[in-house]
């Protein structure tokens, strides 16, 4: 079963949030939506879970009972304890008592939250609270799991924990769609979609996306054209869209981050040409 959104257009008043975006979310895989704030990630995710109606296009999603959703906000009820959050959300999906415990206990265990069942959600650290939100989204044993920036603002250690939980959910058969601003996370996903101002900038498997960039990227110490350059760790990178062999620097195999930055540069330049 593959879920997803095809050719989605969404307008909010005069603003167009999605411009013909399509994404497939196959079962057993993690699909990533990458983009900055305002790119349309949240709108796409909310359209998939039925929170935003489309002006045009179609949505394929399972029944509400089989959708798990973690919004970009807190994701749990701050004034309730971990266990109370579990009880409440479990109840909404018709899980109580033993059935709920069988479902929730391993989740809390894996998320390293079993020891803090009585702590209020509001008193958890940012990383723990995101993990609780994830556990809540996992309670219905979802066919479709939609996670809106599960790792933003979360430290690297908790991010590793979260990633482990997410990849396990996929390994157990859920179709997972997550949004992120971290490209190292996107690189681990089976496929990804890069959004920019409501447009699809890039899409495909990480390999396909990296291969889709034309031209060459070099590692250098001085940029010949700063508008085409950026920092990557300790190095400087520069993109030559025409593929011309540059004089200095060494040609590198770009990673996802390089490709997304280069593609964003290209989009900006195309935009200027149009004007």
């Amino acid at each position: 079963m593959s879920y997803g959104v095809s050719d989605a257009w969404v307008r909010f008043g005069s603003q167009v949030a999605l411009r013909g975006v399509s994404v497939g979310v196959p079962a057993g895989q993690v699909t990533a939506v990458v983009g900055g704030d305002g790119a349309g990630k949240s709108t796409l995710l909310r359209a998939l879970v039925g929170r935003v109606g489309l002006d045009q296009g179609s949505v394929a999603a399972p029944a509400r009972e089989r959708i798990g959703y973690l919004p970009a906000t807190t994701g749990s009820w701050l004034d309730m304890s971990v266990q109370e959050n579990i009880d409440f959300v479990g109840g909404a999906y018709g899980l109580t008592g033993q059935a709920l415990a069988r479902r929730a206990d391993p989740l809390l265990e894996r998320a390293d939250l079993a020891g803090v069942r009585d702590r209020l959600s509001g008193q958890l650290s940012g990383g723990m609270r995101r993990k609780l939100g994830f556990c809540l989204a996992m309670l219905p044993d979802p066919e479709l799991l939609v996670l809106d920036e599960p790792s933003t603002g979360v430290d690297p250690v908790s991010r590793v924990d979260l990633w482990r939980l997410i990849s396990e959910a996929a390994a157990n058969g859920s179709a997972v769609l997550m949004s992120t601003t971290y490209l190292d996370e996107a690189e681990r996903c089976a496929s990804l979609l890069v959004l920019h101002e409501g447009h699809t900038l890039l899409s495909g498997t990480p390999h396909e996306v990296v291969a889709s960039l034309s031209g060459t990227i070099i590692s250098t110490t001085t940029l010949s054209r700063p508008a085409f350059g950026w920092r990557h760790g300790r190095e400087l990178r520069e993109w030559f869209p025409e593929g011309r062999q540059p004089a200095g620097g060494s040609v590198i195999t770009p990673d996802l981050e390089d490709v997304v930055i280069a593609s964003s540069l290209k989009l900006g330049m195309d935009g200027e040409e149009r004007l």
């Binding site: 990458v34 983009g35 900055g36 704030d37 790119a39 920036e149 933003t152 603002g153 601003t181 490209l183 920019h196 950026w230 920092r231 981050e257 997304v260 930055i261 964003s264 540069l265 900006g268």
Partner: peptide
């Protein structure tokens, strides 16, 4: 304090240009 949290890759690169 966490200047680039939630920012897209190109904007992040440009913010770091400013930092340098």
């Amino acid at each position: 304090d966490e200047p680039t949290s939630g920012v897209d890759p190109l904007s992040r690169a440009r913010l770091w240009d400013t930092i340098h």
